[in-house]
């Protein structure tokens, strides 16, 4: 069966025809739209490498059936920077060495953006760790990741106040 899906991806309208409904949002982004920043790690919702924002909320795109997301607003790692200007969360990951090999990093950063949007972690490292527990890093860069998230959140708060 053929299905038409219209998405807004990083602010751009994308019309995609699916020949088969067995397509996840992750595979649609990577295989059909060539947005390969979003990674396929476990493909079972356990590692978080595929994290994207859907209507402002972080989700695992590997467990989302693309057909069900017709009309959704998607933001991927490719949509964060404004030209050469990095998003504050991206910059904080670099400043705090929040990665080693980099494979999990797009998912970590999208998850961190989602966590900051949710607004519940504050400046509590325990709440950041708990809020980021859906993103695994096999290199073990978690300490830097927690620092990066706390720092990015602080910068974004200061920016809002100013």
């Amino acid at each position: 069966m053929t299905l038409s899906v219209t998405l807004s991806v990083n602010g751009v309208r994308r019309d995609v025809t699916l020949e088969d409904p067995r397509v996840t949002l992750l595979d649609l982004l990577r295989e059909r739209l060539d947005l390969v920043g979003t990674k396929k790690g476990c493909d079972r919702g356990q590692c978080g490498a595929c994290t994207v924002l859907v209507d402002g909320r972080r989700i695992n795109s590997c467990l989302a059936l693309a057909a069900s997301y017709d009309g959704a607003d998607i933001v991927t790692i490719e949509g964060l920077a404004k030209g050469d200007l990095l998003d504050p969360v991206q910059a904080a990951f670099i400043a705090h060495d929040g990665f080693q090999c980099g494979f999990c990093t797009p998912g970590q950063i999208m998850s961190a953006v989602g966590l900051i949007n949710e607004g519940e972690a504050g400046d509590d490292p325990d709440r950041v760790r708990e809020g980021m527990s859906g993103n695994l890093c096999r290199c073990g860069a978690h300490a830097g990741i927690v620092e990066a998230v706390l720092d990015a959140q602080k910068q974004l708060q200061q920016r809002r106040v100013a």
Partner: peptide, 9 residues
Amino acid sequence: GASAQLRNV
């Protein structure tokens, strides 16, 4: 339960 990403959907 689960992770923040999973609880969101």
